[in-house]
Every structure is written in C-alpha cells, then in structure tokens.
Amino acid sequence: MTDPRRIKPPMGPDNGWWWDMAAAGKLGIQRCAGCQTLRHPPTPMCGDCHSTQWDTVEASGAGTVCSYTVLTHPQFPGYQYPLIIILVDLAEGTRLTSQLVDCEPENVEFGLPVEMIIQEDPDGFKLPVFKPAGAA
C-alpha cells in the first residue's frame, strides 16, 4: 500500500542544508562568502564573483505574495486541496516558492503580507510554509 505522504526532496551537497535548517525550524538563505550576495535557489558557485565559498543566514520569515496559483486537479496523495502555492518576496530580498496555509483560496491576493511557519507532517517531515501575516 502506498503511504500517502508528500514527495520528499533528494538531498545533496547543494540543497540538503536548506532542508536540515527547515527540520530545525528555520528558513535558510544561502549567502556568498565572496560578495555577500544572497541567492535562492542555492547554487554551488556564485554567478557574480565565482566564489565556491558560502554560508547561510536565517530569514526573518516575513514576506509578500509575488504570485500564486490554486491547485485543484489532479489531486495527489500526500497533499491537501485546494492547494495554494505562492511565490514569496522575502524581506531579505530573495524569492522562494512555498505554500500558503490558514487562508481560503478566495482570500489570497497579490502583495498579501505573509509570515513563515514550519509545518510538520504526520511522518515528522518539516517544511517551511506561510500564513497571512498576523493570522492566528
């Protein structure tokens, strides 16, 4: 029997740290050690200064909705529908793709202020998602 769990990311040297930070309750952003540029999604080399050295910063979790889609069909096991997917412009200046929770589909809008929370699945997998800023 198929376990109805979300698809898990493969984890390698270029991306595993991000999920490790998520498991520790944090939203990570990669920072170039050469020119301090923040980048997401992460890459092993800075396209500007070509440094392969980098560290990470913890994002505040505050952002606004840049774009969104509401997925209704097909419905895959491990996900709850309607599923609101958002692009979030983080306060730090990078953008990421995530999910909006605690919000009805008709209430999502461009520019909506959101804040990150860590969602934990029944199997213990953790991932950063967002809720409308100030929502309970």
């Binding site: 493969p10 390698g12 270029d14």
Partner: peptide
C-alpha cells in the same frame, strides 16, 4: 512528479517544487 535518492542538478531543481505539490506542468 520526481523523487528519490538521486541528486542530479535536474532532480534538485524539481525538488524545490515537488514537496510542495507542484507536480504538473500546468502548476
């Protein structure tokens, strides 16, 4: 959708989307 233990650059790319449920080109 894609998943698994292989960490090619392509699969890492998709993994920013598939855990969130973005599995189809339309999404």
């Amino acid at each position: 959708g894609v998943s698994g233990d292989i960490t090619s650059s392509d699969l890492v790319h998709w993994s920013w989307y598939t855990p969130y449920g973005m599995l189809i080109p339309g999404s």
